[in-house]
Simulated assay, not measured.
Amino acid sequence: MTMIQTSLPKRDPSARLENWSRAFYRFRQSWLSVIGLAIVAVLIVIALVAPLIVPYPEHVAGATDTAARFMPPSAEHWFGTNALGQDMFSLVLVGSQVSLFSGLAVVIIAIAVGGLVGAVAGYFGGWVDETLMRLTDLLLTIPSLILAMAVAAALGTGILNMIIAISITWWPAYARLIRGEVLVKKEEQFITAARALGAGPGRILGRHILPNIISPVVVKASLDMGFAILTVASLGFVGIGVRAPVPEWGTLLSTARGYMPDYWWTALFPGFAIFLAVLAFNLLGDGLRDVLDPKARR
């Protein structure tokens, strides 16, 4: 008796390269998306190297210079100074770390929690699905910003508490999205074949379903980054976010509102930083949607 050995066909590397080339071509067709990607890249680099390039690191640490109060933008102070004589350029630079990385942490935690809840609910169904989705629906009925403010006020100020508060309000949207994708994918023939070969629920979810639904999650995450940054700034603006003297764009904007319009630069530059970050991530997300989500391509 002779044994006939068969092997699964391997994917041609040239085909994978061609798919990436097509995706990049679709992405660069939108010059707004390219601009968004460039701005996001610049913001990330600035956030990473900010402590090394700030001209007045002592001001970031909380030092004051009352003799230089409310100096307008100049060659010495590019963004002017605030009521304490602190250099606004240094504060805005370091504030990018708090705002960007807090927004990124919120999105990552929301994806992790929402992905687990949505995957379990969609795959197992039945009473598990009903229980988890009713909890999700309950959280979705409460305005996210109001709920985040309530949780942040209960936990207290601080970066970690702020991230936890916002994440609690954001994971239900990812749970809904991933549940819907799992419900569709688990009926596919390759999932039936995996079950026939003896694969368990954990292997099916981790190796077969979740890798095939990553595209809509990436698109939503890129779009949500801008709104996460805006929510972080909102909590800082109302005084229940980051503690002073840690600079954060929303906190800087909240402090400056009492000096408008006479000392406009104290509010203009933190506000513009928030606007630029939100705009850049939305432009990037729009481009990724065209590339990764075939249903939404224009």
Rank of each mutant, 00 (worst) to 15 (best):
Pro51Tyr: 03
Val54Leu: 03
Arg243His: 14
Glu188Gly: 12
Tyr259Arg: 14
Tyr174Ser: 06
Ala67Ile: 10
Met162Gly: 13
Val291Thr: 01
Ala199Glu: 01
Ala15Arg: 00
Ala194Asn: 00
Leu138Arg: 05
Met88Ala: 15
Thr6Gly: 05
Glu188Gln: 14
Pro245Cys: 10
Asn19Trp: 01
Leu279Cys: 12
Ala63Met: 11
Ile35Phe: 15
Leu84Pro: 06
Phe269Tyr: 15
Asn212Met: 04
Ala221Cys: 08
Trp20Ala: 09
Met260Lys: 04
Leu43Gly: 12
Asp65Ala: 08
Arg297Leu: 08
Ile108Gln: 04
Pro261Met: 02
Thr2Arg: 04
Val291Ile: 00
Ile142Gly: 06
Gly118Ile: 01
Val117Tyr: 01
Arg257Phe: 11
Ser30Gln: 12
Phe89Tyr: 15
Ala256Tyr: 08
Asp129Met: 06
Gly80Asp: 11
Gly241Trp: 14
His77Val: 14
Met149Asn: 12
Gly271Arg: 06
Ser14Pro: 00
Met149Ile: 15
Gly36Asp: 03
Glu18Asn: 02
Ala41Gln: 13
Leu138Gly: 11
Pro73Thr: 14
Gly206Met: 00
Leu8Phe: 06
Gly118Cys: 07
Ile39Lys: 13
Trp171Cys: 09
Leu8His: 06
Ser21Arg: 07
Gly206Tyr: 00
Ala152Glu: 08
Leu135Ile: 12
Gln189Cys: 14
Ala67Lys: 01
Ala296Pro: 06
Asp262Glu: 09
Ser33Thr: 05
Ala68Tyr: 07
Ala15Val: 04
Leu140Gly: 00
Val92Trp: 11
Leu284Asp: 10
Asp137Ala: 01
Ile146Glu: 08
Val107His: 00
Gly180Lys: 07
Ala196Ile: 01
Trp264Lys: 01
Ala150Met: 12
Glu58Cys: 09
Ala273Thr: 10
Arg207Cys: 08
Ala83Gln: 12
Pro73Lys: 13
Ala121His: 07
Lys295Val: 09
Ile240Thr: 13
Leu210Cys: 05
Thr255Val: 12
Thr169Asp: 10
Trp127Met: 03
Trp78Cys: 15
Gly118Val: 02
Leu139Thr: 04
Gly158Val: 09
Trp78Ser: 15
Tyr25Arg: 11
Leu288Pro: 09
Leu284Gly: 11
Ala23Leu: 06
Ser254Tyr: 05
Leu292Trp: 05
Val54His: 08
Thr266Ala: 14
Leu145Met: 12
Leu84His: 12
Val34Ser: 15
Val246Ala: 15
Thr169Leu: 10
Leu147Gln: 10
Ala277Asp: 03
Ser96Thr: 13
Ala15Met: 02
Asp290Leu: 08
Leu160Arg: 13
Val218Trp: 06
Met162Asp: 14
Pro261Arg: 00
Tyr56Ile: 01
